[in-house]
Computed example of a mutant assay.
Amino acid sequence: MTSFSRMIEFSTLETKCSYLDGCRTRMEYKYIENATMELNQALVERGWRRFGHYYSRPQCQKCTSCLSLRIDVKNYDFSRSAKRAFKKAEGLRYVIQSPTISNEHLELYDKYHRFMEQKRGWQYYNLKPQSYHELYVSGAHNFGKEVLYFHGDRLIGVDLIDFLSDGISSIYFFYDPDFEKLSLGRLSIYEQIILAKEYDLDWIYLGYYVEHCQSLKYKASYQPYQILQGYPNLDEDAIWI
């Protein structure tokens, strides 16, 4: 038995799509207790997203709007707006470590999602400590990290990422709305690009780009980028164009 052989596969029933009005969605999942870095790479490269021990991707019957997008790091040049974001963020402190959970994490997560409920109409729910741990701490193994953003001693941002052999997988970022003027969402991606350049990595895997979804269409602004073609299986080549 290999170290990642405990793999449980299942799919959800069709439900209302949270990205596009009037659409229905169905997700397929893989639960992998001991995923290696190599397996994590293979899955992310084929459009799977990791949250904890769970990997998921769309399995929708009549829609292919969710497109896996990755930024071409080697050919990415920082724009004037990026340089302005760096300027505004001068004085912030960053810590990179294995994912953790604390009262600060939970309070910041809750504050951010209450804010997004008002700003974008996101469905708010109170995430319990156990659920946060299952989503963002467990399953990280030796490749999952969190980048913590501090203003003085105050935690103002948490960026969950995976290091891959060829890039960085951007899992989730949340921040303190009181510091919205610092453009922390964009800053987090810029910092990922800097990290990738420092480690000589080729790609930032940004997850799903959806052209007509307000919360996901921004990803196409990070050019140049590539789009995954279709939904390849593990025994098929991943073709990005």
Results as ranks from 00 to 15, higher is better:
Cys63Leu: 08
Thr64Gln: 02
Ser65Pro: 00
Ser65His: 02
Ser65Arg: 03
Ser65Ala: 07
Cys66Trp: 00
Cys66Ala: 03
Leu67His: 01
Leu67Tyr: 02
Leu67Asp: 04
Ser68Met: 00
Ser68Thr: 05
Ser68Cys: 02
Leu69Tyr: 01
Leu69Trp: 04
Leu69Cys: 01
Leu69Ala: 02
Arg70Asn: 05
Arg70Trp: 03
Ile71Tyr: 00
Asp72Phe: 00
Asp72Arg: 01
Val73Ala: 04
Val73Met: 03
Val73Tyr: 04
Lys74Val: 13
Asn75Arg: 09
Asn75Met: 12
Asn75Gly: 09
Tyr76Lys: 09
Tyr76Asp: 08
Asp77Tyr: 07
Phe78Leu: 08
Ser79Ala: 11
Arg80His: 11
Arg80Val: 12
Arg80Glu: 12
Arg80Thr: 12
Arg80Asp: 13
Ser81Asn: 14
Ser81Leu: 08
Ser81Thr: 08
Ala82Ile: 04
Lys83Ser: 10
Lys83Met: 11
Lys83Phe: 09
Lys83Pro: 04
Arg84Met: 11
Arg84Asp: 13
Ala85Val: 15
Phe86Ala: 05
Phe86Gln: 06
Lys87Leu: 06
Lys87Gly: 02
Lys87Ile: 01
Lys88Ala: 06
Lys88Arg: 10
Lys88Cys: 05
Lys88Glu: 09
Lys88Val: 06
Lys88Ile: 03
Ala89Asn: 11
Glu90Cys: 05
Glu90Trp: 02
Leu92Ile: 07
Arg93Leu: 10
Arg93Lys: 14
Val95His: 09
Val95Lys: 11
Val95Ala: 06
Ile96Met: 15
Ile96Lys: 13
Gln97Ser: 14
Ser98Asn: 08
Pro99Glu: 02
Pro99Cys: 06
Thr100Ile: 12
Ile101Gln: 10
Ile101Met: 12
Ser102Val: 14
Ser102Gly: 04
Ser102Pro: 02
Asn103Pro: 04
Asn103Ile: 13
Asn103Cys: 09
Glu104His: 05
Glu104Trp: 09
Glu104Ile: 05
Leu106Asp: 01
Leu106Trp: 10
Glu107Gly: 06
Glu107Val: 06
Leu108Ile: 04
Tyr109Pro: 06
Tyr109Phe: 15
Asp110Tyr: 10
Asp110Asn: 15
Lys111Asn: 14
Tyr112Asn: 13
Tyr112Ser: 08
Tyr112Val: 05
Tyr112Pro: 09
His113Cys: 14
His113Ala: 11
His113Asn: 15
Arg114Thr: 05
Phe115Arg: 11
Phe115Pro: 10
Phe115Gln: 12
Met116His: 13
Met116Thr: 15
Glu117Ala: 10
Glu117Gly: 02
Glu117Cys: 08
Gln118Ser: 12
Gln118Arg: 14
Gln118Trp: 11
Lys119Leu: 10
Lys119Met: 07
Lys119Gln: 11
Gly121Phe: 06
Trp122Pro: 00
Trp122Cys: 04
Gln123Tyr: 12
Gln123Gly: 14
Gln123Pro: 10
Gln123Leu: 14
Gln123Asn: 15
Tyr124Lys: 01
Tyr124His: 07
Tyr125Thr: 08
Tyr125Pro: 00
